[in-house]
Each structure stands twice: as structure tokens, then as C-alpha cells.
Design a protein around this nucleic acid. Sequence first.
DNA 1: GCATTTACCTAAAAGCATTAGGCAAATCAC
DNA 2: GTGATTTGCCTAATGCTTTTAGGTAAATGC
Lengths: 172, 172
Amino acid sequence: MADEVGFDKVTVAALARHFGVKDASLYSHLKNSQDLKTRIALLALSELADRVAAALAGRAGKDALEAFANAYRDYAREHPGRYAAAQLRLDPEAAAASAGARHAGMTRAILRGYDLTEPDQTHAVRLLGSVFHGYISLESGGSFSHSAPGTEETWARVLDALDALLRNWPAP
Amino acid sequence: MADEVGFDKVTVAALARHFGVKDASLYSHLKNSQDLKTRIALLALSELADRVAAALAGRAGKDALEAFANAYRDYAREHPGRYAAAQLRLDPEAAAASAGARHAGMTRAILRGYDLTEPDQTHAVRLLGSVFHGYISLESGGSFSHSAPGTEETWARVLDALDALLRNWPAP
DNA sequence: GCATTTACCTAAAAGCATTAGGCAAATCAC
DNA sequence: GTGATTTGCCTAATGCTTTTAGGTAAATGC
């Protein structure tokens, strides 16, 4: 439903309509409407982690970087509603139960192909997360669609640039 | 109100309570609730552009890069509700009337201090936008707060890294 | 075969969005 | 200045979404 009608349109009432039951009936399954949203977010985070893990298997260096980045971007394009859910700010309890740690771990795994030590590794993990999250968010919001060149080309060149940066990370 | 109670809590009803008038009265001033949200977004985008313009004046190179990035980040911290509003997906009409073009122009202005020509300039503009948007979004969502080192240090090193990257942008 | 759990239901309250129609004060035009 | 218009607000009403409380019938567990 999230992918079809948009994550923000997934309400308890809409879900009840979808299943042909009464709104109130769903409260045996859900704590409240926030709970519904959180569950979608956790599902998306978990699916996304699975995809990334599969994409990353057997790859290293720039190959891994591209596979990782494309796994995120492809998931966002194929499942826009679920990806939007994955951006939801989770409360600490939900965050702890989420696949967040897997994501962080896999981002760090990319860096094994590059010559970075702590704390630069953490800085780089955060930079990569920022770029991917930011790029996909801006692209899906249409920010890049009103000017040449195409976003496909930019995406490739951004990955080139990140690869170059990781291979040549500046000293403090 | 957005900064105090959160952008998503700024409803027509809440605004009416705030002013001590009836909900319906506000519909003389607003088209609908989406219009209210759009107006907040346009305000935020415009204020942010003013700040960035002021921060950028008389600076070039890494100095400009840092001023630009900090203007965004500081605004997001000082006015979280307004910054959230600025992320709203605007319909084409509102987008055209927004300060979006000023933002794009100023991002491009940063690159004057670096040796980039089209189409790399556009790629770099998009990368910078992605990093800043992504970083601020993740940081404000608490994604960086559960591990060392501190986000202040990462922010400084990310700006170092972007500066290095722009000075040494890889050929296709 | 009885007790419990599951998966629904009805009823009802409360909040938000929105439209229609109306009134009084402020402002404008001549 | 006075009549016309605009402005800013109101009441009333509708329809949606969320959520709680209390109840029933079928499925499941021991």
C-alpha cells in the first residue's frame, strides 16, 4: 500500500478499507497509528539491509561502493513508499530493534577496500550515508530533474568522485 | 510555531488555537492546509537563502564552502521546524516561486573557487547538495549520536574531504 | 470438552479539514 | 462625509481519522 498510494497515505482507516474490516478492528493488531508506521519502517529497513548484503557479497573497493549505492537507489525507486518509511525517525526502542546496525556495519565493510583507519573510517561512513541518503532524497524529490545533465550521469560521476576521495582521504 | 512544536504539528486547527480564532476563519487567509505548509516552506527557503548569501559574501574556496555549509547547518539547528518545512516537496508552481534557484546559484558560486567546468560543475553542485542535505538530516535524526567520534569533528573532516575532492575532481 | 485466545464487531468521543452563508468594522471612492 | 466594498471574523454543518470500551463467535490449546 505504501508503494502504491504513498507512505503518508497509509492510515489505519485506509488499511481497514483495504482489508474490508472496520477501523477499530485493527487496534487488536496495532498499538496505534504510529505503531503501524514504525512497523513499515522496520520492514523496509530490514528488506533494504538484505538487498545490500546480497549486493555486497564478493565485492570490494569501487565495485562494492557501486553495488552498495545502487542497492539503495534501486530499492528507493522500486519501493518509494517503503523507502520513505525507512526515513522515519524511530524512537530509541524501535531504532535498537531495527536493522540500523546492519546498515552501519555494511557501510563500514565497503571501507575495507580502502586504506582508512579510525576515526577517519567513521567520518567516511557518515559521509557515505549522507551522500546516498541526500542524493536519493533530492533526486526523488525532483530537485535534479529540471536541468541537464541527466541524473544517471551525475550518479556515476558522484560514485567516481567518492571512490577517488576514499582512495585519497585527506590528512587532518 | 513550527520550531516550537514541530512542523508536522502545525495544523490549521493548531494555528487557529494559537491566534485565538476559529478554525474556519483561517480559510479566508489560506487556500487549504497544504497551502499553509507550502507558505512555511517558502518562508524557510527564502530566509535560508538570505543567510547563505550573507555567509558567502566576500569568501571563496574552502572558506566559502565552510560558510555555506555552516549556514545551512546552523539554520537547521536554530529553526528545526522551518528547516523541516524547507524539505517539503513543492508542487511545480510553488517551486518556481521559491528561492530554489537562489540556492542552486549560490551552491554554484562556491565552485568558482575551484577549477571545475561543465558538466562536472553540475555534478559537484548535486554532490554538495546531497551531502549537506543528507548530513543535516541524518544528524538531526540522531543517526550519528550513538557512536564516537562527535559529529562536530566529523563535520569538520567532511568539509576537509569535500574541499580536497573539489580541488582534485577526478576525470571521467 | 471446556477455557482461552483470536479476530472481529458496534458504539462513541474527540480532533482536524473544509464549505457555506452571514455580520460588523475598516477602508476606499467620489 | 457617505455609500460601496473589502476584510476579518463568526456560526453551523459535514466528513474524515484516531482511539477507547465493551461484546461475540469461531478457532485453538490442554
